[in-house]
Amino acid sequence: MADARTEPVISLRAVTAELGGRPVLRGIDLTVARGEVVALLGANGSGKSTAVRTVIGQVPVTGGAVEIFGTPRRRFRDWARVGYVPQRTTAAGGVPATVTEVVTSGRLSRARFGVLRKADRAAVTDALEQVGMADRAKDSVSALSGGQHQRVLIARALVSEPELLIMDEPMAGVDLASQEVLAATLRHQVEQGASVLLVLHELGPLEPLIDRAVVLRDGCVLHDGPPPKAVGQHALPGHDHVHPHDADAAPVRTGLLT
């Protein structure tokens, strides 16, 4: 078990990246070991979303090395092992789509030619049950609340039965009931042995699950170790002073935080 835990599923070494000619990552190191839950924290503009997007290949790196499951990202093809939950910005396309249709698109990494078998349909039902959205399977995603929509996006990531989950601000714009469902879903995934990389604005209800926190500032790693305690977290530059432990006072987020 000890050996398996030390094998990194994500490894970034001295990664640099720029957006529009402006350096966003200035050489960061980041590893996620097998079975580990790592939170990537930092203020707006610190580069945490960009770091995650270099892993999935959405942002090209200008230097350093990115590896997924020990394979350089450019040569990595086994995407069914990765479940990705993007920041909830592209809420819905211009055409109605049901919850089932959206979640099914996450299964394409396994159903390569788009032919769905019985097991694929069962996986869709199972993923929807995990996030408590099975009763909304036939509803249009545009009729869902922010929290419900986020649950659907997480089901879409889970439906390929991934070993690695990458989530960009999964709690942004999510009501408390959905936050609890998401935390329970994630706990279940971790118990099953999944590795997780989370971009978070604050630790919030996921805090007990997190093994390690990496804090970014201005594209550099500021801290890599145990999750910062509340006091330390509040001391971070740009921290917006919400109190995640005070559940009743937790503000409803807009989902526009980057």
Binding site: I56, G57, Q58, R77, D78, W79, A80, V82, Y84, P86, T90, G93, A97, E101, V102, T104, S105, G106, L108, S109, A111, G114, L116, R156, S160, I166
Partner: peptide, 21 residues
């Protein structure tokens, strides 16, 4: 013939890339 793939790409291009499409 490619409706599921085209649906995925048109719905969420970033996610579609991570499914290996």
């Amino acid at each position: 013939g490619l409706r599921r793939q085209l649906f995925a790409v048109s719905q969420d291009e970033e996610f579609a890339r991570v499914t290996g499409l």
